[in-house]
């Protein structure tokens, strides 16, 4: 039984599938992109992401399951902080055994996959509201987030429709990823570090107005911090300026 490491990418996961398929026995999977603290285990195995292997697994999924199933697997894999790699590996195995199995809702793995997808969309929906952009000196809008799940790639469409003519970027601090939009295309890539940002002249003023607005709208006869905490979990507040982020 091995403790298996991979880089947290979809291709990495598919490469891992190939080993799994060939009989690698897995005790736990560690996603290097988000897990910094883990209990070391005696038998360790590092998966080197291999584009060709990943591509061939992708092709096989497409061939047997079609686009719908591939999409499902991808979406489920975004629920990365749930340690759901093994479920996904099992799911792909089910698919390769018999396509009928992946639509059988009495199989635990299939249910789990559906649940993962739901949670991912829920996180995405929350992020659509919680994301805060700041304006840089050249008009680019930037945002920093630390979402629970890897939803960055699912945010592009919404903001593309909303800000078609603005240049904007969303940084996922937790995963070192950035989604950048310019001239009608949205691309996700990785970043190492960011230079000191230079904000527009207007930025601080607008932030001040927003904070004042936010503080003054609460009706004091109805204050309910419990409700507020249940809606805006503490974990996302560090990225929201009305909570001092």
């Amino acid at each position: 039984m091995y403790q298996v490491f991979y880089d947290g990418t979809f291709n990495g996961l598919l490469t891992l599938y190939d080993y799994f398929d060939k009989g690698l026995e897995i005790e736990t999977v560690v996603n290097r992109a988000i897990e910094k603290n883990f209990q070391p285990y005696i038998f360790q195995f590092e998966v080197e992401t291999d584009r060709d292997i990943a591509d061939s697994v992708t092709k096989k999924i497409l061939l047997i399951g079609g686009e719908e199933v591939l999409k499902k697997i991808y979406l489920a894999s975004l629920a990365d902080s749930d340690k759901n790699e093994i479920i996904i590996l099992d799911y792909i195995k089910l698919l390769f055994t018999d396509i009928e199995l992946v639509s059988n809702l009495s199989i635990e793995t299939v249910i789990e996959i559906e649940k993962c997808i739901k949670r991912v969309f829920f996180e995405r929906h929350k992020m659509l509201g919680f994301i805060r952009f700041s304006e840089l000196y050249d008009g680019t809008m930037v945002s920093f987030i630390s979402p629970k799940y890897n939803v960055l790639s699912l945010l592009g469409g919404h903001f593309k429709r909303r800000f078609p003519d603005i240049r904007w970027a969303i940084f996922d601090k937790k995963r070192g990823m950035v989604g950048y939009y310019f001239r009608y295309s949205f691309e996700v890539s990785y970043y190492e570090s960011i230079d000191e940002l230079e904000y527009s002249a207007n930025e601080n003023k607008v932030r001040d107005v927003w904070k004042v607005f936010f503080d003054s709208i609460a009706i004091k006869e109805r204050l309910s911090y419990e409700r507020q905490v249940s809606k805006v979990p503490l974990r996302v507040r560090e990225d929201m300026l009305e909570f001092g982020g």
Binding site: A218, R222, V232, M240
Partner: peptide, 11 residues
Amino acid sequence: ICHTWSADGRC
């Protein structure tokens, strides 16, 4: 879409 919740718990 709710963007934040005020101190009285409203969207």
